[in-house]
């Protein structure tokens, strides 16, 4: 089954162009706005396998490149996801790259510029990237803290695409397609999202994602009361603070009157 993705702007063309020119791509955007879905779609479109690595602060270069393992015959070398993509072609997608330690991401440098090679110190190999190899990284600019961030020297090797939540018409379209809910309900969900996204960091940590809206719509299609569906998919997922919860509940009840 091919995945569904509705472009927000010219990101598909840009991505294709970058792939054609062998340039790496950096995607910025809040959670649940369609970054991962976009890459999956592009992978299908370009007929390239996608190797996804979700980065965390203990991710070492070996986790990307590969390491020696032991079996009954002794040690053997196991390629990491990055090396696999480099050898065989494909999209290596590093999600939430700023979560990884900065020294880890340095292994990407020689891959992310004109050289397109991956040196593996441990085996002494220097792998030239497959013509279909493409490096894609993403992060959520909202999460940064004082000591985390992307090195400018890493950042400046990418074609950057900035994602936001889709425009209301597009978002409605996406909800309709993904959940099968009726049009007025989808419109209401989009309106609710629009209002929640007006809140600033001081009110709420992160605004409602398209993903959560789709969850809400799916629950409704399953037969849940709209108010209940929103409560469990949107409201409770967004905050633990009583004041915020109260307002969000109120907002939902204004749009979908509570079931009698």
């Amino acid at each position: 089954m091919s995945s569904y993705y509705l472009p927000q702007a010219n990101e598909v063309e840009l991505f294709e162009a970058a792939a054609g020119m062998n340039l790496p791509v950096l995607i910025k955007g809040p959670t649940g706005c369609g970054k991962t879905r976009f890459i999956e779609t592009m992978g299908e479109k370009l007929d390239r396998e996608v190797y996804t690595v979700v980065c965390h602060d203990d991710l070492s270069a070996a986790d990307l490149v590969g390491r020696h393992l032991i079996d009954e015959n002794g040690t053997y070398w196991q390629d990491g996801p990055l090396t696999k993509a480099v050898r065989n072609g494909g999209i290596c997608y590093l999600d939430e790259i700023i979560e990884a330690r900065k020294d880890t991401t340095v292994v990407l440098h020689s891959l992310a510029d004109y050289r397109r090679v991956l040196p593996i110190d441990r085996t002494g190999e220097l792998i030239e990237a497959h013509p279909d190899f493409m490096l894609v990284v993403s992060y959520n600019p909202g999460y940064q803290n004082v000591l985390k961030g992307m090195k400018p020297s890493t950042k400046q090797r990418f074609i950057s695409l900035s994602f936001t939540y889709p425009k209301p018409e597009i978002e409605k379209e996406v909800i309709l397609k993904e959940s099968g809910v009726d049009e007025p309900t989808a419109q209401k969900l989009v309106n609710i999202a629009g209002e929640i996204r007006q809140l600033s960091d001081s009110d709420i940590q992160e605004a409602v994602s398209t993903r959560l809206l789709i969850y809400a719509a799916k629950l409704m299609v399953k037969g849940f009361d709209p108010y209940e569906a929103c409560m469990h998919s949107i409201v409770e997922s967004l905050s633990d603070e009583e004041d915020v919860l109260e307002v969000l509940r109120k907002l939902i009840s204004l749009h979908f009157s509570k079931a009698e």
Binding site: L199, D203, D243, V247
Partner: peptide, 15 residues
Amino acid sequence: EKSLKIFYHLLGGDK
């Protein structure tokens, strides 16, 4: 008070 403030922001009010 707190809830109203957030609600006002929700509706696009001046923060």
